[in-house]
């Protein structure tokens, strides 16, 4: 018996009826729809640091056109952003700010570490630079290069798309207690702030 790509093995269908179908085709999981939309509508936070930020701008330019992925909507407000592209070296002075921006972003959120300086400190192994932004925020995709060309960044973005669509990230965040409902511990003895959820 031939095999129909969308339905599955026709012999099994003939034997078991609808139970022989490989998957439902009248209904689908809403999770797939959500992942589909998340992957196609990643809004990056406007977060440029150093050389890599210039290449990030170039990625938004006419030659590379990040808008193809629906990502030209750089959001200035971290509340509305989905992905933070850490583009460049993170200094000790910038680290708290970067973490604050990350905390201000709403779940689900992702981080791309762009360039070697963000990923590992790069050539600046000295007093001023944080040796890898993953010491501060959880990084999902690392883009290598100094600076990574726009093609590399696009590849990182497509990689992130695939990860989002394959649902890996949401599971990971569930596992480590991420997601909505967390509290942020305050420095110097201030009270912890409960994040108000409306739904």
């Amino acid at each position: 018996m031939p095999r129909i790509p969308i339905l599955g093995d026709t012999a099994e269908i003939a034997e078991k009826g609808l139970g022989g179908l490989e998957h439902n085709f009248l209904t689908a999981r809403i999770e797939d729809l959500v992942n589909w939309s998340r992957a196609r509508s990643l809004m990056p936070a406007t977060f440029g640091l150093a050389c890599c930020a210039i290449e990030m701008m170039a990625t938004g330019g006419s030659h590379y056109d990040i808008a193809r992925f629906g990502m030209e909507t750089f959001r200035a407000s971290p509340r509305q952003a989905d992905v933070m592209i850490v583009s460049g070296r993170v200094s000790q002075k910038m680290a708290p700010v970067l973490r604050q921006i990350y905390d201000q972003m709403m779940e689900p959120k992702w981080v791309i570490s762009m360039g070697v300086c963000a990923s590992s400190g790069g050539m600046f192994n000295n007093y001023a630079i944080v040796q890898g932004v993953d010491q501060i925020v959880p990084v999902d995709v690392y883009a290598p290069g100094c600076p990574p060309g726009p093609e590399t960044l696009l590849h990182a973005i497509v990689t992130l798309h695939k990860m989002i669509e394959s649902d890996e990230l949401v599971k990971r965040r569930d596992a480590n207690g991420g997601g909505a409902g967390v509290t942020v511990e305050q420095r110097d003895g201030q009270t912890a702030t409960q994040i108000v959820l409306s739904r």
């Binding site: 640091l49 150093a50 460049g88 070296r89 200094s91 000790q92 002075k93 910038m94 700010v97 050539m123 600046f124 000295n126 007093y127 001023a128 630079i129």
Partner: peptide
């Protein structure tokens, strides 16, 4: 300023 201080003169 200083948020991008890289210590390049030291390096």
């Amino acid at each position: 300023i200083g948020y991008l201080h890289t210590g390049m003169e030291k390096t």
